[in-house]
Design a protein around this nucleic acid. Structure first.
Lengths: 222, 222
DNA sequence: TAGATTGTTAATCGATTAACAATC
DNA sequence: TAGATTGTTAATCGATTAACAATC
């Protein structure tokens, strides 16, 4: 496990490390210790050193890690040095909100394609992205080299949309519906279910478990 | 730990159990085994029995669990037998998408309050919810008995909004910005960061790790 | 050299799972 | 009674953390 095997927990922490490091780089801090980084991200310093070592990232004993080097390496690991064109299926409020959200393009996920079956929506434009019929999905995904598909349709359509995305060759899917989707093993799906997030919050509220769960400092989603 | 202590992992699985059970109830299945439920949710049957036992839910040996009883008990645990009025801070695309999303009200989280500092937005209405100035937050939260606050503002405002929500007595917060917020120990925060979700997807894509991570069957967010 | 900090081993912790006696 | 399935113990697994030799 010392090299090559990267746990899901490690992957989940990488974006947090990166955010913290980018702030340090902006503040012209050239070097950072695992202790310092750990404190900012809210984990143990041994965990930071282990996470970085598992990516093959090394520091200097007595000194720490070079911030610029860390930022570069983690960015490479997360694929942030390249663009991942995104297709959003469903041009309802959520689909339009995602398309309008400039933060995604800034972080390398430009939304290039918006699909919907509603004839009233087809042909309209959201933040410069034209809405196309879902029937054109396969052709457009290939034409635009779409790397990530987002399911922002009603829950009933989730599986059907996932199937269409997979058939078109998309291997990364973000599912915003309440309905889990089944996909072949080479495809990665993550699900963001708003009602589930709220239900988990209300569970803690109900139980008065906030402080006993070590929350307070935010409980991360991943 | 056998009783009273409920792990975060267990809490995260409850909504999935409930979804599956509701389908069974609709199909008039009166009883379910831990084995059957485990298969539907994608966990081990011992985990199901342990999760349920930790909530004080018992089944019948040789028979299984009564579906209606399970649905009721888990609903109570998740607080679904009551309403949790929600306040959304930020009436941008995301805030409006959330307010328009009927799935939340259906699952007990009606959005009762929408706040924004933009004078052009104040006074407008989204799905019947009027936009109020953020300065009125404390008074309106009390008046409407808001239980959950949602931060849907630009990242820079996240901490300020969290502070205002906490000061107004809100103890459950869902944060949609990329910025983690610090809150007192009695407050529960969950964060949903879209760019982070996409970055994790692209990491797996980059590495070709999909099948080796046991994804395929969806990797849940929680 | 003295102080700091990494890289890694061994200990710990917590969660998952196999296994099975209890019992419907 | 025979078959099924729970409730729970003990084993396993994986991830976190303490500790410390290596070394800048």
């Amino acid at each position: 496990m010392s090299s090559g095997a990267i746990s899901a927990a490690t992957v989940g922490r990488l974006p947090a490390y990166l955010r913290s490091l980018v702030e340090l780089a902006a503040a012209d801090t050239s070097t950072v210790s695992s202790d310092h980084l750990a404190e900012r991200v809210g984990v143990n310093s041994a965990t930071v050193r282990r996470d970085l070592a598992s990516l093959g990232i090394t520091g200097t004993r007595g000194v720490g890690y070079d911030v610029k080097y860390l930022v570069f390496e983690i960015s490479v690991e997360l694929g942030l040095n390249q663009e991942w064109p995104v297709a959003v299926v469903g041009a309802g409020n959520l689909g339009r909100a995602l398309t309008n959200y400039t933060g995604l393009a800034e972080r390398g996920f430009p939304i290039r394609l918006l699909l919907d079956n509603d004839p009233a929506k087809v042909g309209t434009t959201v933040s410069g992205v034209e809405v196309h019929p879902v029937g054109h999905l396969a052709a457009l995904v290939r034409e635009l080299s779409v790397a990530v598909g987002v399911i922002a349709t009603p829950a009933e359509a989730a599986q059907e949309v996932a199937d269409a995305l997979v058939a078109a060759g998309v291997t990364s899917i973000l599912n915003f519906t309440a309905h889990p989707v089944a996909v072949p093993g080479h495809v990665v799906v993550r699900r963001v279910d708003l009602a589930t997030e709220l239900q988990i919050l209300s569970f803690y509220q109900q139980r008065g478990l906030a402080s006993s769960t070590g929350v307070g400092v935010p409980l991360e989603t991943s």
